[in-house]
Nucleic acid binder design. Structure first.
Length: 673
DNA sequence: AAACAGCTAAACACTA
DNA sequence: GTAGTGTTTAGCTGTT
C-alpha cells in the first residue's frame, strides 16, 4: 500500500501527466485508498479549474470578438491587424457579468430587425455575438449541473467510504466511483470541446496555432500528454501548410484543425482528405511507405473502422471514397477524432496505472521486475505460442531449462498458482526445474481449471511436473485410473504444449510412471492401467509446512472420518491434496474461506466417491490405489498430511470431470462395461 | 557441497 | 519388423 502510493505519487503526478494544467481526470484512478478523500477534493478542484479555464476561454474569445467588431465598426478607416492581434493576445479575461447583460431578448432582436437600423454586416455580427453568448450561458448551466452532480457523487462516495465495512468493498466502491467520476469528467471535457468547436465553427473562435497565451491552448494541454502534444504540434504545422491553399473555409477559419482546441490525432493525418493516401505517421517514422496499397488502419475486413461508422465496402477504393466523403476534414470528424484521442489517452493512462500496479505488486512479492516486458500483450496466444516456440524450438522441446530466461524468484504460492495466466506469466513457465506445484505442494487443479483454456491453446509449458500432471490426469478420470494411452491423450488434450515433440514427453511420461512409486500399474482385463498411490505421492517430498496446529488437527480430524467414509472419499481427500495453508504460505485466505474450501472439497470428494464406487465394473478395481494404500505398512504419518491437502473446489473440479467424460468417451467402451 | 528432485535422452525388453 | 509399452540408466540442472 505504501509502496503503491509512493509510486503513484512520484510517477503519476499531474506534472508527468499533463504538463501541469491539472485538468486530467484520469490521473485519479488507482490512487491509494488512504488518500481518497483529499484526492476527491482535488478532483473537484481540478474540475473547477477546468471549467474555469473553459469559461475563460469563452469569455476571452467573446471579448475579443466584441472588441474586434467594435473596432471595425468605429475605426473603419484605420486598420492595424497586427496591433489588433497583439492586443488580442494580451487580453485579460473579464467577468461574465460584463457580458451577460448584453444578451438581447428575442423581442429586442425583433425590434432591431424590424427597424432595420443595422446593416446586414452589423446584423451578422450581432447574431454571432448572441449565439456566442447563448452558448456561453448554456455552457455555464451545463457546468453548474455537472458540478452539482459531481459534488453529489463525491458526497456519496465519502459517505460510503465512511460506512464501508471491509477494505475490499471499499476499494471496489472507490474504483467504481472513480470510474463514474472519470466518465463524468470526460463528458464534461467533451461537452466543453463541443461547445468550443461550435464557437469555432461559427467563426467566433479564431485561434492561430502560433498565438501565444491562448487559454484554449492551455486547456488542450491539460488534456493531452506532452508527447501527444508534441505530435499534435508537428501534425498541426504540417496540416496548416497543407490546408493553407484551401479556400473552402474562406472568411473564417473556424474549421481549421490547426487551432489548438482539437487535439490532433495522427489518425487525422492518416487519412489525408484530398487523396485518401494513408501516410504512416507513427512508429516507423515518416519515411516509411504504407505497408500495402490496400491496407489502412481504418479499414479492416471490408469495414470502415472509423468510430461509429462500420460501413461495409466491397473494395478498398470504395472505402477510400467513403473515407474522403464521409470522414473528411469537418467538424464532426474532428470531434470524433478528439473523442478517439481521449479514448486513447484514457487507455494509455489506464495502462500506465496498471503497469504501476503490477510493479507494486511484484515489488511487494519480491519478484524481479520484468517491467519492460510487463506491457500486457494482447491476449493473442498465438503470438505467445510463436515466442515460446522460437525459444524452445532451438533446443529440444523439453529442454527449456537451457533457455536464457531464468525463472524469476519464487512467487507467493497463492498469487501464482491461483491466478489466471497472463502474458507476464509466460516468462515464468518453462525453465523451472521444480515446478511450483511441486515446490509448494500446491494443487494443480485450481490452476489447471482456471487456466485451462490458456494451456489448451497456448504452446506454453505448464508449470507442473510430469508426475503432477500424470497424477492429475489419473485423478480426473472417473475411475481414477488411466491407460498409458489415455494419459497421453489427456496431455495432448489439455496442453497445447504437448501436441508436439511427442516422443520426448511421452518418454518422460513413461519414465515417470515407472520411476515413481506413486504410480501403480494395475493389470486389467483389457491391459494395464495406471493409478495413483496418493500416500506415496505425498511421501515423495517431505513437506515442511508450519501450519497452525489447530488446523492440522482439523484436517486430521477430517481425515479421521476414514473408517466411516468410503475409501473413495479418503482417496479423493488425499488426491486433492488439501493443503494446510498458513498465512505464511498462502498469503491471504482466511480460515473461513479455507474451511469453506475444505467443506466444498469434502462435498466434491463425496460426490466423486459416490460416482465411482457403486457402479464401476467389477472386473476392474475401481480404486486400485486404495487397495494399495490399505496394504501399506507405514501408518499415515500426520506430518505427511500437513501440506498435502489441496483447495480444489467442486466448482473447479467438476468441469474437468465433465471434460474428462468426453475424453473417456473417446477411449472406447471399456468404461461402460 | 552434497543430496535430492526433475527433465531429457537413450538403451533395452516385452508384447501385440 | 514395427509400434507401443514398460523399465532402467545416465547426465544434466536446479533446489534444498
Amino acid at each position: 500500500m505504501m509502496q503503491e502510493s509512493g509510486t503513484e505519487a512520484t510517477s503519476n503526478g499531474p506534472a508527468n501527466q499533463n504538463g501541469g494544467a491539472g485538468a486530467e481526470p484520469t490521473s485519479r484512478e488507482g490512487r491509494p485508498k488512504s488518500a481518497t478523500p483529499s484526492v476527491e477534493v482535488s478532483a473537484a478542484d481540478l474540475l473547477h479549474l477546468q471549467q474555469h479555464q473553459a469559461l475563460q476561454v469563452a469569455r476571452q474569445i467573446l471579448l475579443q470578438q466584441q472588441q474586434q467588431q467594435q473596432q471595425s465598426q468605429q475605426n473603419t478607416g484605420r486598420k492595424s491587424p497586427k496591433a489588433n492581434d497583439k492586443q488580442q493576445g494580451l487580453q485579460v479575461p473579464v467577468s461574465v457579468a460584463m457580458m451577460t447583460p448584453q444578451v438581447i431578448t428575442p423581442q429586442q432582436m425583433q425590434q432591431i430587425l424590424q427597424q432595420q437600423v443595422l446593416s446586414p454586416q452589423q446584423l451578422q455580427v450581432l447574431l454571432q455575438q448572441q449565439q456566442a453568448l447563448m452558448l456561453q450561458q448554456q455552457l455555464q448551466e451545463f457546468y453548474k449541473k455537472q458540478q452539482e452532480q459531481l459534488h453529489l457523487q463525491l458526497l456519496q462516495q465519502q459517505q460510503q467510504q465512511q460506512h464501508a465495512g471491509s477494505k475490499q468493498s471499499k476499494e471496489q466502491q472507490v474504483s467504481a466511483q472513480q470510474l463514474a467520476f472519470q466518465q463524468q469528467l470526460l463528458q464534461v471535457q467533451q461537452v466543453q470541446q463541443q461547445h468550443l468547436l461550435n464557437l469555432q465553427r461559427q467563426g467566433l473562435l479564431t485561434i492561430q496555432p502560433g498565438q501565444p497565451g491562448l487559454p484554449m491552448h492551455s486547456l488542450t494541454q491539460a488534456m493531452i500528454p506532452a508527447e501527444l502534444q508534441q505530435l499534435w504540434k508537428e501534425v498541426t504545422n504540417a496540416h496548416v501548410k497543407e490546408e493553407h491553399n484551401s479556400s473552402s473555409n474562406n472568411g473564417h477559419r473556424g474549421l481549421d484543425l490547426s487551432s489548438p482546441a482539437p487535439p490532433k490525432n495522427p489518425l487525422l493525418n492518416q487519412h489525408a482528405p484530398t487523396n485518401g493516401q494513408y501516410m504512416s505517421h507513427k512508429r516507423d517514422g515518416p519515411t516509411l511507405e504504407e505497408p500495402s496499397p490496400h491496407s489502412h488502419p481504418l479499414y479492416g475486413h471490408g469495414v470502415c473502422k472509423w468510430p461509429g461508422c462500420e460501413a461495409v465496402f466491397d473494395d478498398f477504393q470504395s472505402f477510400l471514397k467513403h473515407l474522403n466523403n464521409e470522414h473528411a476534414l469537418d467538424d464532426r470528424s474532428t470531434a470524433q477524432c478528439r473523442v478517439q484521442m481521449q479514448v486513447v489517452q484514457q487507455l494509455e493512462l489506464q495502462l500506465a496505472k496498471d503497469k504501476e500496479r503490477l510493479q507494486a505488486m511484484m515489488t511487494h512479492l519480491h519478484v524481479k521486475s520484468t517491467e519492460p516486458k510487463a506491457t500486457p500483450q494482447p491476449l493473442n496466444l498465438v503470438s505467445n505460442v510463436t515466442l515460446s516456440k522460437s525459444a524452445s524450438e532451438a533446443s529440444p522441446p523439453l529442454s527449456l531449462p537451457q533457455t536464457p530466461t531464468t525463472p524469476t524468484a519464487p512467487l507467493t504460492p497463492l498469487s501464482q498458482t491461483h491466478s489466471v495466466i497472463t502474458a507476464n506469466n509466460l516468462h515464468n513457465v518453462g525453465p523451472m526445474r521444480r515446478r511450483y506445484s511441486e515446490k509448494y505442494n500446491m494443487p494443480i487443479s485450481p490452476d489447471l481449471s482456471q487456466n485451462k483454456e490458456f494451456y489448451m491453446n497456448a504452446d506454453v509449458r505448464p508449470p507442473f511436473t510430469y508426475a503432477s500432471l500424470i497424477r492429475q490426469a489419473i485423478l480426473e478420470s472417473p475411475e481414477k485410473q488411466l491407460t498409458l494411452n489415455e494419459i497421453y491423450n489427456w496431455f495432448t488434450r489439455m496442453f497445447a504444449y504437448f501436441r508436439r515433440n511427442a516422443a520426448t514427453w511421452k518418454n518422460a511420461v513413461r519414465h515417470n510412471l515407472s520411476l515413481h512409486k506413486c504410480f501403480v500399474r494395475v493389470e486389467n482385463v483389457k491391459g494395464a492401467v495406471w493409478t495413483v498411490d496418493e500416500i506415496e505421492f505425498q511421501k515423495r517430498r517431505p513437506q515442511k509446512i508450519s501450519g497452525s496446529p489447530a488446523l492440522v488437527k482439523n484436517i486430521q480430524t477430517n481425515l479421521g472420518y476414514g473408517p466411516t467414509l468410503s475409501a473413495a472419499f479418503q482417496a479423493s481427500m488425499a488426491e486433492n491434496n488439501i493443503p494446510l495453508y498458513t498465512t505464511a504460505s498462502i498469503g491471504s485466505p482466511t480460515l473461513n474461506s479455507l474451511a469453506n474450501a475444505i467443506r466444498e472439497e469434502m462435498n466434491g470428494a463425496m460426490d466423486h466417491g459416490n460416482s465411482n464406487g457403486s457402479d464401476s465394473s467389477p472386473g476392474r478395481s475401481p480404486l486400485p490405489a486404495m487397495h494399495h494404500i490399505s496394504v501399506k505398512e507405514e501408518p499415515l504419518d500426520p506430518d505427511d498430511h500437513e501440506g498435502p491437502l489441496s483447495l480444489v473446489t467442486t466448482a473447479n473440479h467438476s468441469p474437468d470431470f465433465d471434460d474428462h467424460r468426453d475424453y473417456e468417451d473417446e477411449q472406447g467402451p471399456d468404461d461402460m462395461l
